[in-house]
Write a protein that binds this DNA or RNA. Structure first.
Lengths: 343, 343
DNA sequence: CTGAAAGCGCTTACAG
DNA sequence: CTGAAAGCGCTTACAG
């Protein structure tokens, strides 16, 4: 049973487009054209309309615009996650800030939708019927079919982070591979030779690509790439992974950790097992989240600009909505190594 | 210059209410009544309509509903913050989850709006013209006039956390006072007598009310309440505050910290200055965020249920929108002490 | 309990 | 460059 909450109605006050037109001495059509930034409007009419709008504090009714214009003037930010744990993640927060920044000044609303894979059908039905003009997708796991299914409905989509599913949707991601590679090169330059990694989950590109970068770095240095343990994005799993690694290879002198939050658990175990950081074991994280600078010791880490990621996703989506040609199908954003005490 | 991004249009496919009516053998009016859960519809008509809707996979056009019904079928979640730092906060994440959970199954969209105080005018103009039916406000600072101004516009509002501004808007908050009181009672029961506090910012009720609880607890035990330092919600400020306290009163044997994230800095300083926790100094935090269980040592803390806070705010707002009478103007949610190693 | 009709406030061909 | 008119897809008195 879908419980509908009734909402009491009473016509909201405030001017309509009609009144703006009257005050400006033009037709509703012209006011509409000015509002929508169309090209063929005389400067005189434009000024008169702007003046009237300001004077009346007019703000157009979005529902009417959407209905008449057959566009929603809204995009969805879809968080596809089992427990929607991402929400508290600095990654998500950064993306959200970026999306918002890019939307500022355009009259496009941001609808936030959380959807567990088992609810995807409802979500698809809803989105397919024109409630938004496009969708941004974050925290896709494994081969989640959501992006492709949305695309089939004809809804423009941009993913944040490279989706692993077969087929392709446009995405924006940090250059995780190069980030991992740079981390290892740095460790090698420090003279480290037993370089392990605590990798991210292998059902996400961020996990896989950072791992590939680590492998490539070891290959370049002709070092063996055998010390791999996996963790999800929690300190606890990082602690377990690090323990395993130390059991397997007590002589580890460096570790590249796929996320700062995982590194928290890694540092804890290293400390507990009597290894000094960086003297005995150098540690490099990934993200440059707030955690990195407050960790003990402060963490050398690969910085990714998540706010820029959010901005770029939004820019790419809006470009597609506007029918821009020549948009890059996908984009990779640069990362950079931030040196602190841990390596 | 407000850059408008044009969005290409082409009538979205999919059934309209007309087709549902035809298939069900009733009028559009009746279909509308069924969709809106109105009372006076025969069971027969209702069933026919439901069948037709399922069959056609009909999903009503929200814009048309909003325009005709003069309601937005949307509520705003407004984050009023300077740097929108809150977004990465577990507090915000929990509230968001709760809001979303409460909205599930009702056809009400959630619009996320971030607004810095200097942008409030734009936000007010936008909201005042009927784009949402109500607003949820979080992370209000000091005497931010936003909630009252929204109320003046006739927009139903519920704040998350007690607003400090004069006048009153409905709010839902955790019982911060009792939480602080319980924390101190626990410390007293442990035999501690020099009980300090690292309080939260005094421009937020969460800061003030937890501090009041601490004061009251000390009063009950006839202990002096002179050891107060203030911090904002960062580990760094917590570290500074704890250093000050130790300088002023080296004999401190307990400290109540207004938030787990602040406690991180407190623990760091205690460790650095050679105090064992809990042997020398017992520490109680607030929130029971993920940080509490992964801290060293794991943190005894006052748990608040932020997801419940989000749910309750939403329930209160929807109740008001539905015209329910007898709604409590404001609500205080219980907190509970979670015992771990630090106290 | 139900239907025909008006109307919500815009946008957009169309004609000029 | 501009305006009159139609129409977007619903909801809602009104009458029955």
């Amino acid at each position: 049973m879908s419980v509908m909450t009734e909402i009491d109605r009473q016509r909201r006050p405030g001017p309509r487009i009609e009144e703006v037109a009257r005050l400006a001495g033009v037709s509703k059509s012209t006011v509409s054209r000015v509002i929508n930034g169309e090209q063929y409007v005389s400067a005189k009419a434009r000024d008169a309309v702007h003046t009237a709008i300001t004077h009346l504090k007019y703000s157009p009714n979005q529902a009417a615009r959407s209905l008449a214009g057959n566009r929603a003037n809204a995009i969805a930010l879809i968080v596809s996650e089992q427990g929607s744990r991402v929400l508290g993640d600095p990654f998500f927060a950064g993306v959200l800030r970026g999306v918002h920044a890019e939307l500022t000044g355009r009259r496009i609303q941001l609808l936030l939708m959380l959807s567990r894979p088992e609810d995807h059908d409802d979500l698809l039905a809803y989105l397919a019927s024109g409630h938004v003009d496009g969708a941004l997708l974050v925290s896709l796991h494994g081969d989640d079919p959501l992006p492709l299914r949305l695309q089939e409905f004809g809804l423009p989509v941009v993913a944040g982070g490279r989706p692993l599913a077969a087929g392709s949707v446009p995405f924006v991601d940090s250059d995780n591979f190069t980030g991992g590679l740079d981390a290892v090169r740095h460790l090698v330059s420090l003279g480290r030779t037993r370089i392990a990694t605590v990798a991210g989950p292998r059902d996400m590109a961020a996990g896989l690509d950072r791992l590939s970068g680590w492998r490539r770095g070891l290959g370049e240095a002709k070092l063996s790439a055998d010390l791999v343990a996996e963790a999800d994005f929690t300190p606890e799993s990082g602690a377990i992974a690090m323990s395993e690694l130390l059991d397997r290879a007590p002589g580890i002198d460096a570790v590249f950790v796929a996320a700062d939050i995982i590194a928290l658990g890694v540092l804890k175990v290293l400390h507990a097992r009597g290894r000094r950081v960086p003297e005995d074991v150098a540690v490099v994280g990934f993200d440059d989240s707030l955690l990195a600078s407050t960790a003990t010791p402060p963490l050398t880490t690969v910085r990714q600009d998540v706010e820029q990621l959010g901005r770029t996703m939004t820019w790419r989506l809006l470009g597609e909505l506007a029918g821009d040609s020549g948009l890059p199908p996908s984009l990779l954003l640069p990362t950079s190594l931030v040196l602190r005490a841990s390596a």
